[in-house]
Design a protein around this nucleic acid. Structure first.
Length: 538
RNA sequence: GCGCCUUUAGCUCAGUCGGUAGAGCAUCGGACUUUUAAUCCGUUGGUCGAGGGUUCGAGCCCCUCAGGGCGCACCA
C-alpha cells in the first residue's frame, strides 16, 4: 500500500511527538521501542510538522491560544464580493469587516504580503502592509502557512490593479494546519488519496467541491418538487428481516438482544407501499440502500435511492414525474437542461434534457439492433438460438423473460445515450410490477437509461394479493434453486396487500447517478463523499 | 474473481541501454511597499509500495504480495 507504508514511520513518530507534549510518562513499557525521541530537525514531512507544531508552542509561550474558541465574522466572502465587487481600482474604504477562512496562497513582497483566503462561498485577497499592521503583526502573518485557518479584521479596498482586497488591521490564527497542503498548482490527483482523504481533496480541488454542491442541489430540488406535489417524506427501516424489493445480494448483520439476523435494506419499496395501504397516498423516501455486490464506476455498495409511491396513479404517471424531477433538478443544480453525456466509448454527446424523452419497449430495441422480433411468450429455445447467434452467454435456468432482458442489455443498452424510457419488462423479471393491461406476458414497467446507465425504475404496482403471493413463491423457488439474488415470500407485505393497496404508481431513482449526470463526472466515487474502499493500514 | 495499467520527496511528475535518484510546487535563508499560480538568488528533503530473486551492480529485469485505476464478470 502506497501511503501507509511510505508514511508509517513518519506518522508513528508524529503521534509520538504529540504524546510527548502531553504526557511522555504515560508510555507503556512495550511501546517504548517505538517511542524514541522524535526528530525535531532534518527535513521532509516530519520536519515540516515539527516546525509548525513549534510555532504553536511559541504562541502558547506568549500567552496566545492557537486554537481559539470562536470568531465572529461580519461577512462571508461572497457577501463582500457582492457588496463591494464594483469598486474602482485603487479605492480605499472606511468599511471595516471581519472575515474568516483558510489561507490558500501567500505572496510576500518586502514590507507587503498578499494572501488569498477562501471560505465556503468565495475567496478574497488579503493586503497586509507592515506600516498598517505593525512589525509584530507582520511577522505573525509572515509565519502563516498555506492551509492555516484565520480570522481577519480590516477595511475593504481595491489594489491599483483593481483586485478586491481586505487591508488587514488585525489577523488571528483560528486553527493551524500542521500538515502541508498538496501542490497549489496541480492540487491532488492521486485517486486513492483523493477518496481516502476526501478532506484534502475538498480543500484543494474545486471540481470535487462542485460535484457535491450539485449533488446537494439535486436532492434539495427533488424535495421541493415533491413537496409541491404534496408528497410526504418518510423514513422506513434500514434493518430488514427480509431484504426485498429488488434483486440483489444483501449485507447481513446481527442484533444482539433479539439474537437475530437482520439484513441491510436493498430497496425502499415494500415499506413505502405498506404506507400507501395505510392511506398516506403520496409518500417518498430518500435513503441509503446497500447491495453486497461489485464496486465499479457505476456501483458503490451503499448508495442513495429516492423512491416515491402515488396512490391512484399508474406507471405512465410516475414516468412523467420522473422526467419532471430530473429536468427541474438540472435547472436548479446547474442552471441549464443542456448536458454533455459520455457514451461508453467516451464520446460526449450534447443533450437537452428538456426535450421529450424517448419511450421504447425492450422488444422494439432488440428488433432495432438485431432485426429479430422477440416476445416473452416465445419458447426459451427460440431466444437461446438468438443469443447463440449473437454470441451471448446465458444461464440455462433463465426463462424467456429473463432471456429477453439479457438480450436487450447485450444488444441495446450501451447505445441508450439520450434519456430513454425502456418499457415492456417481462413478468418473470418483475415480481412486484403489475401485468400490462394489454399483454399478460409483460408488465407496466419502465427503466430510465441515460448515458447507457440505468437511472430509474418504475411501474404500476402489483396490488392483487393472490397474484403477489404466486410471484413471491416463484421468487422463493428460484432462490431455493440457487439464485441468491432472488426474493422470498414476505408474509407481512402480503397481509398489507390483503387490506387493499389502491392502484399505485411507484418510482425509484438512483440519486448518485443523477448527481453524476448533472455534475458531468464519470465515476460514482466522485459524487459519494466517502466511497467504499479497502481499509488503509496505518 | 480475471485481464491490463499503475505505485519514485508532503504534493505534481521525470528517470534513456541495468551503473546506487532529478525537476516544479511546498519548506528553510536572502532581496523586494500593489502582487495575482508573484518574481529572483540560495537551501533542505526520497532508497524508489512491501518482500524475494537474477546480476559485479536493480527505480529499471523476473517472481510473490498489497493499494489504486480501467475493463470484464457480478450488478432487474
Amino acid at each position: 500500500m502506497v501511503m501507509q507504508n511510505r508514511n508509517n514511520s513518519a506518522q508513528r513518530r508524529s503521534s509520538n511527538y504529540r504524546l510527548s507534549l502531553v504526557s511522555a510518562e504515560s508510555n507503556t513499557p512495550d511501546e517504548n521501542e517505538d517511542l524514541d525521541i522524535p526528530e525535531l530537525t532534518g527535513s521532509g514531512l516530519q520536519a515540516e510538522k515539527s516546525r509548525r507544531l513549534g510555532q504553536l508552542d511559541e504562541m502558547r509561550a506568549k500567552g496566545v491560544n492557537p486554537y481559539p474558541y470562536r470568531f465572529d465574522r461580519t461577512h462571508t466572502l461572497a457577501e463582500i464580493r457582492s457588496q463591494w465587487g464594483h469598486l474602482e481600482a485603487g479605492t480605499e474604504t472606511d468599511n471595516e469587516v471581519a472575515i474568516a477562512g483558510r489561507i490558500m496562497l501567500k505572496r510576500e513582497q518586502g514590507k507587503l504580503i498578499f494572501g488569498t483566503v477562501r471560505d465556503r462561498s468565495s475567496d478574497i485577497q488579503l493586503f497586509v502592509s507592515k506600516a498598517v499592521i505593525g512589525d509584530e503583526g507582520f511577522a505573525d502573518v509572515a509565519s502563516l502557512d498555506l492551509g492555516d485557518w484565520v480570522g481577519v479584521y480590516g477595511n475593504v479596498m481595491t489594489t491599483r490593479k483593481g483586485e478586491l482586497s481586505i487591508k488587514v488591521s488585525r489577523l488571528e490564527l483560528l486553527s493551524k494546519a500542521v500538515r502541508p497542503l498538496p501542490n497549489k498548482w496541480k492540487g491532488l490527483t492521486d485517486t486513492d488519496t483523493r477518496f481516502r482523504q476526501r478532506y484534502t481533496d475538498l480543500i484543494v480541488n474545486e471540481d470535487a467541491r462542485r460535484a457535491f454542491e450539485v449533488r446537494h442541489a439535486v436532492i434539495s430540488s427533488f424535495r421541493r418538487s415533491l413537496a409541491a406535489k404534496e408528497f410526504i417524506e418518510v423514513e422506513t427501516p434500514v434493518l430488514h428481516v427480509e431484504a426485498g424489493g429488488a434483486h440483489a445480494r444483501p449485507f447481513l448483520t446481527h442484533h444482539n438482544s433479539l439474537d437475530m439476523q437482520l439484513y441491510l435494506r436493498i430497496a425502499l419499496e415494500l415499506h413505502l407501499k405498506r404506507l400507501i395501504v395505510g392511506g398516506m397516498e403520496r409518500v417518498y423516501e430518500i435513503g441509503r440502500v446497500f447491495r453486497n455486490e461489485g464496486i465499479s464506476t457505476r456501483h458503490n455498495p451503499e448508495f442513495t435511492m429516492m423512491e416515491l409511491y402515488q396512490a391512484f396513479g399508474d406507471y405512465s404517471e410516475v414516468m412523467a414525474i420522473c422526467e419532471e424531477l430530473i429536468v427541474q433538478a438540472a435547472r436548479d443544480a446547474i442552471g441549464t437542461t443542456i448536458v454533455g453525456i459520455a457514451d461508453p466509448a467516451g464520446v460526449v454527446h450534447t443533450v437537452d434534457l428538456a426535450e421529450p424523452w424517448r419511450r421504447a419497449s425492450m422488444m422494439e430495441l432488440i428488433a432495432e439492433k438485431t432485426g429479430v422480433e422477440t416476445h416473452p411468450s416465445q419458447p426459451v429455445e427460440t431466444l437461446r438460438a438468438l443469443a447463440d447467434k449473437l454470441g451471448m452467454r446465458y444461464d440455462k435456468r433463465w426463462g424467456s423473460g429473463k432471456m429477453i432482458e439479457e438480450i436487450f442489455e447485450f444488444t441495446a443498452e450501451s447505445s441508450l445515450i439520450r434519456p430513454t424510457f425502456v418499457t415492456g419488462h417481462p413478468v418473470e423479471i418483475s415480481p412486484l410490477a403489475r401485468a400490462d393491461r394489454n399483454d399478460p406476458f409483460i408488465t407496466e414497467r419502465f427503466e430510465l437509461f441515460v448515458g447507457a446507465r440505468e437511472l430509474a425504475n418504475g411501474y404500476s404496482e402489483l396490488n392483487d394479493p393472490v397474484e403477489q403471493r404466486l410471484r413471491f413463491e416463484e421468487e422463493q423457488a428460484a432462490k431455493d434453486a440457487g439464485d441468491a439474488e432472488r426474493g422470498t415470500v414476505d408474509e407481512d407485505y402480503l397481509r398489507a396487500l390483503e387490506f387493499g393497496l389502491p392502484p399505485t404508481g411507484g418510482l425509484g431513482i438512483g440519486m448518485d447517478r443523477v448527481a453524476m449526470l448533472l455534475s458531468g463526472v464519470s465515476s460514482i466515487k466522485e459524487v459519494i463523499l466517502f466511497p467504499t474502499l479497502r481499509p488503509e493500514a496505518f
